[in-house]
C-alpha cells in the first residue's frame, strides 16, 4: 500500500549537509499496525508527515497504492490526503472555539458529507467512545484522555484507510494511554492501517511491526 524508496531529507547548513532522514526504505501493507520508535529528533515525525502528505520537501520515491506521489498534481494529492489519511497529535490540537460535536463534524464538512449522514456518523462515534453526554462541552472542559478520544474520533470520522498518530499518548497518564491504544487495536482489527510514532515500548506491543530509528535511518525492524 505504502512504498517508500530511498527517501532522503536534509538541511544544507553553511559547512555541511545535515540529514534528517537518510535512505529510508519502507513498505507498509494494508492492515498493518506499525510503530516507529526512537529517541527525540530521530526523524519519526518527519517520516509520518511525509507519509501523510504534509511534507513534500524530500528526495526519493513514494508510491501510494501503486501511484507515485511526486507525479501527482496538487489537486490529486490533496484529494488523496483528504480521503485516505487521519491524524492524531500528541497535543490533541482540537479547535478551542468548537464543541466536541463540532470538532468531530469539521472534517466531514470539508468532505461535503450531507447533514443527515454527518449526524449519524457523529452519533455513532460519540456512542462508541462514550462521549454522548460531553458532546456540547468545549475542549478545555475535558481531561487530556477525553480530548485525545475526541482527537481520535475526529481522525476516523472521515473513514480514512491510514491513521497516523504522532506520540498519541505523550501527554497522557498510563491508564488513559491504555484506553487510547485499545481503541487503536480495535480500529486496526476493523481494517484501518495504523502508523504511530512513540517513545513507549508498551505502546509498541499493541502493533505488529516495530521499526526502530536512529539518526534518520531505519536501524532495525522487529515483528511482534
Amino acid at each position: 500500500m505504502i512504498h517508500l524508496q530511498n527517501i532522503n531529507k536534509y538541511i544544507d547548513s553553511r559547512f555541511q549537509r545535515v540529514f534528517i532522514l537518510k535512505e529510508i526504505e519502507l513498505t507498509i501493507e494494508q492492515g498493518d499496525f506499525v510503530t516507529l520508535m526512537g529517541p527525540s529528533g530521530v526523524g519519526k515525525s518527519t517520516l509520518l508527515n511525509i507519509i501523510g502528505l504534509l511534507d513534500e520537501d524530500y528526495e526519493g520515491e513514494y508510491t501510494f497504492e501503486g501511484k507515485s506521489i511526486k507525479a501527482m498534481k496538487d489537486r490529486q494529492r490533496s484529494a488523496l490526503h483528504k480521503s485516505e489519511f487521519g491524524y492524531i497529535f500528541q497535543a490533541y490540537h482540537l479547535i478551542d472555539e468548537l464543541t466536541v460535536y463540532e470538532n468531530i463534524e469539521t472534517p466531514l464538512l470539508y468532505r461535503n458529507v450531507s447533514s443527515a449522514e454527518r449526524k449519524s456518523i457523529i452519533a455513532e462515534l460519540l456512542d462508541r467512545f462514550n462521549m454522548v453526554a460531553k458532546k456540547d462541552l468545549f475542549p478545555e472542559q475535558l481531561s487530556g484522555g477525553q480530548q485525545q478520544l475526541v482527537g481520535v474520533a475526529r481522525a476516523i470520522a472521515g473513514k480514512p484507510k491510514v491513521l497516523l498518530a504522532d506520540e498519541p499518548t505523550g501527554n497522557l497518564h498510563s491508564a488513559q494511554a491504555k484506553e487510547i491504544m485499545e481503541v487503536f487495536q480495535e480500529l486496526n482489527r476493523e481494517g484501518t492501517t495504523i502508523i504511530q510514532a512513540t517513545h513507549s515500548r508498551e505502546n509498541a506491543d499493541y502493533g505488529h511491526r516495530l521499526i526502530e530509528m536512529m539518526d534518520g535511518k531505519i536501524y532495525q525492524e522487529v515483528s511482534i
Binding site: 501523510g52 504534509l54 490526503h81 483528504k82 491524524y87 490540537h93 482540537l94 479547535i95 478551542d96 472555539e97 469539521t106 472534517p107 470539508y110 468532505r111 475526529r154 481522525a155 472521515g158
Partner: peptide, 9 residues
C-alpha cells in the same frame, strides 16, 4: 486552528 483545519482536509 489553521494547522488543524489544513490537516483535517
Amino acid at each position: 486552528e489553521v494547522g488543524v483545519r489544513k490537516v483535517i482536509g
